[in-house]
């Protein structure tokens, strides 16, 4: 409806969420539908991030200005979990490393050289912090297990191909949740 009424704004990115493939919220983030409402743009998550993974958006992103975003192709999240401790609003919930669900790594089997049988690359497997759980090798080809993948993006960052053969899809950010679930999670 909003995009019908304000098509130009939506196209200019004023209303559209900046979250997309490989562009993710920091760990423990609440669903994207209330993220811009809850976040007070204090920038403390970006200040504490030792790896400079978290960047702060500016007014070109409309009402999302000032919110934190991680572009895992540039700098992935190393799951140091400092940002979730400093968020004063509960926008980043205090989760453990294993509980982080920034997104889900998806392998493009038509792009990946190992899957195409051209080479024996296993960079994504090597860099994964949850090796043998989130990613394992099936006849030397990498396979993701969505039960354990945190979406940290280390595999994307490591993938030597352009365009990347492995990408993080923010599958959890746009889940619709009932208000009760949301409130429970907020507490």
């Amino acid at each position: 409806m909003g995009s019908l009424l304000l098509p130009r704004l939506a196209h200019a990115g004023l209303l559209k969420s900046p979250v997309g493939i490989n562009h993710l919220r920091p760990p423990g983030a609440v669903p994207e539908e209330i993220f811009p409402a809850k976040c007070i743009r204090c920038g403390r998550c970006a200040e504490i991030c030792s790896y400079r993974s978290i960047r702060v958006l500016d007014i070109r992103y409309g009402v999302y200005a000032g919110t934190p975003l991680i572009n895992v192709e540039e700098v992935p999240c190393y799951l140091c979990m400092k940002c979730v401790d400093v968020c004063p609003t509960g926008t980043l919930r205090r989760v453990s490393q294993e509980e982080v669900r920034m997104g889900l790594a998806v392998i493009n089997r038509r792009q990946c050289v190992t899957w195409r049988g051209l080479a024996l690359c296993r960079t994504c497997y090597n860099v994964c912090p949850f090796k043998e759980k989130a990613i394992h090798l099936d006849q030397l080809r990498p396979v993701i297990d969505e039960r354990f993948c945190t979406g940290c993006g280390l595999c994307v960052h490591g993938c030597p191909l352009t365009p990347k053969a492995i990408n993080i899809e923010p599958v959890y950010a746009f889940e619709r949740k009932s208000r009760d679930v949301r409130e429970e999670e907020a507490l």
Partner: peptide, 15 residues
């Protein structure tokens, strides 16, 4: 800022 966060997200976070 805190009040806005509470009013718009309609959730209360004790910290």
């Amino acid at each position: 800022e805190g009040l806005e966060s509470i009013l718009v997200s309609k959730t209360v976070y004790l910290p």
